[in-house]
Write a protein that binds this DNA or RNA. Structure first.
Length: 488
RNA sequence: GGCCUCAUCGUCUAACGGUUAGGACGCCAGGUUUUCAUCCUGGUAACCGGGGUUCGACUCCCCGUGGGGUCACCA
């Protein structure tokens, strides 16, 4: 049987980085096994549903390159569904759940419950005070068939509950091994809500079975409800899929990664200038390690190396510092031309316009200093206009103002006479200026330091050759002239 | 609190009974360089505690401690 995995987000409007990792692992396993990776929309909670959320979710998957083989996809901005076991949106599958609910009801495996939320709340409070586990007390299980029919006919609000059988339930988690729980710990979970929609527990079991899912890869927070699912599989007479519960992604304080302590949405990270491939690489290694000392992996490598059984069991702190480093690695590997395209949107949102040719040169000489794409916004300033600076920094630590001025004059005079073609390449600018230094018997520091500061206006910056090349002859001469004036 | 679950440097992790406990991020120091970044070299830093099992435990078992998850007509 071929592998079929699925990622099943609720459409609340954003993709959590934990969800990104879950989606990734589902994707990796499917790709590696030549299987199918399915996306299913779990929108059974009408209160949390956000219009347009599926579209933005799909756009996000497109950006991180994790588009599904089956399920909803965006075609010219419209959501369409692909695959033979659809629909892939749970709100479009209501008759399917109703039919399966009927089967459980007929088999005596589920029962109708009329209890009000007020009664349930009161019950829960009492149980908490008495330090008992909070479970439904099966108040409606004893209702006679006639009474149920009569109240149903009267249009009374009701839900369908699972009648949890006696005994123990266990399952083998691919990552954690056997997990067993006594059924007395399992609540008579609501299967169909009073609005006719299924709960997650009902829908996930029915859909995973009907969609022929072989591996359920999801977050650790689902472990405690998995017995409910296993019980349902058994009651339906189906084989359960393999379960793999991923370790949680944690805040620095080890609690479950939450919005309160920083950004958690993939969208936020992309907006902060992280590259999708860096983010994917980073989360791939949160809870999984292919052995070996490699840190940077291509998607192809991840696909071939991925191994569910090697996924870790304990939670992983989402360490921004390491993400920053990794993103910097990816930025450095981009060509200047690629960076121009990536960086442009950030300049646009910052309201800055930079000539394309100049921007490409800036990217070429600044990329080793960029950790995130947003860094470009500040970097660009010193190239577009000369920044204000203290004239004192024009003087090298081993020289004085007069020496600095003399060397700036020397460089200016030299550059004004050389062939313009040297501005075509950094190396040619370098050869020219170094040739001048050597010919005059000067030292690098005395000449290069003031030249560099004259061109950048900063104590720390790229080198003078790169700067001159990026700024072009006119701007270079103008800045040198200005610095000479300031040291007069 | 009940239940489930987890436990190696600050963080991500390797080790699957025998290693000076390895790598990466971070941090620190040095080198290269006109400065910064990159790059290179080195350093700092960990097996939660206690019992077992074993010739031998980070590795296996038990207990404790600590952390986390979950206990909805949310997923």
């Amino acid at each position: 049987m071929s592998v079929r995995t699925r990622f099943a987000p609720s459409p609340t409007g954003f993709l959590h980085v934990g969800g990104l990792r879950t989606a990734l692992y589902n994707y990796l396993l499917a790709r590696q096994q030549s299987g199918t990776y399915i996306l299913r929309v779990e929108d059974t909670d009408r209160e949390r549903f956000v219009p347009g959320a599926v579209e933005s979710l799909l756009r996000m998957f497109e950006r991180v390159n994790l588009l599904p083989d089956e399920g909803p996809r965006l075609v010219d901005g419209i959501v369409e569904q692909f695959g033979d076991v659809g629909p892939y949106v749970q709100s479009e599958r209501l008759p399917i759940y109703a039919e399966h609910a009927r089967r459980l009801l007929d088999a005596g495996a589920a029962y109708v419950c009329f209890c009000s939320s007020e009664r349930l709340d009161g019950l829960r409070k009492q149980q908490e005070i008495a330090k008992l586990s909070t479970k439904y007390d099966r108040h409606c299980l004893g209702l006679s068939g006639e009474e149920v029919l009569r109240r149903l006919a009267g249009g009374e609000s009701h839900v369908l509950r699972l009648r949890v059988p006696e005994g123990k339930t266990s399952f083998d988690d691919v990552i954690r091994g056997n997990i067993t729980i006594d059924n007395s710990e399992v609540d008579d979970q609501v299967l169909i809500k009073s609005d006719g929609f299924p709960t997650y527990h009902m829908a996930v079991v029915v859909d995973d079975h009907l969609m022929k899912i072989t591996h359920v890869i999801r977050g650790e927070e689902w472990i405690s409800s998995t017995p409910k699912h296993v019980i349902l599989y058994r009651l339906f007479g189906w084989d359960a899929p393999l379960f793999a519960h991923l370790p949680l992604l944690l805040n620095a304080d080890k609690s479950k990664l939450s919005k309160r302590q920083g950004d958690v949405a993939v969208e936020d990270y992309l907006a902060k200038g992280y590259l999708p491939e860096a983010l994917v690489n980073f989360v791939a290694l949160l809870g999984f390690n292919p052995k070996g000392d490699q840190e940077i992996y291509t998607m192809e490598e991840l696909i071939s190396l991925f191994d569910l059984s090697k996924v870790n069991v304990s939670g992983a702190v989402f360490d921004q510092a390491k993400l920053n480093w990794m993103n910097g690695q990816y930025v450095m590997k981009k060509t200047a031309a690629e960076l121009v395209v990536l960086v442009r949107p950030f300049l646009d949102t910052a309201g800055k316009t930079v000539d394309a040719a100049l921007l490409q040169k800036i990217c070429a000489i600044e990329k080793t200093r960029m950790e995130r794409l947003t860094d470009i916004v500040e970097i660009v300033d010193a190239y577009v206009s000369m920044p204000a600076f203290d004239s004192a920094i024009l003087v090298w630590k081993k020289a004085d103002a007069a020496d600095s001025r003399a060397n700036l004059v020397g460089v200016r005079d030299h550059l004004s006479t050389v062939d313009e073609s040297i501005w075509n390449e950094i190396a040619m600018v370098e050869t020219s200026i170094k040739g001048y230094i050597e010919a005059k018997g000067l030292s690098n520091g005395n000449v290069l330091w003031p030249t560099r500061v004259a061109l950048s206006g900063r104590a720390a910056s790229p080198g003078p050759f790169e700067l001159a090349w990026a700024l072009g002859k006119d701007e270079t001469m103008r800045r040198l002239e200005s610095a000479i004036t300031r040291l007069a």
